[in-house]
Amino acid sequence: MALEESHVRRAAHLARLAVSDDQATGFVDDLSRILDMVDQLQAIDTEGVSPLAHPLDATQRLRADEVTETNQRDIFQRCAPAVENGLYLVPRVVE
């Protein structure tokens, strides 16, 4: 499956990555070579094989729905770029 620059631009937008025109060209090149290598998978017959998501086929363990964490907001916000009154600051979203 050939990769086009529009695919790279779409992925970059979905992944929230700023990519310049020059970089986009470079990524088309690199990603195309990676996907060419990946395309070898198409040669295998996987009819009737179910996908494997977890190497041990484990299922999600459940626990009682009880509060176990204490509030550590101040500690966690110490490494934030910008906070005020316990809130994370971002550019204005709603006018």
Partner: peptide
């Protein structure tokens, strides 16, 4: 074409 296929191949590899 990619992800589901790769997960199937993963089972064969295991």
């Amino acid at each position: 074409a990619y992800y589901t296929k790769a997960q199937k191949v993963r089972r064969l590899i295991r």
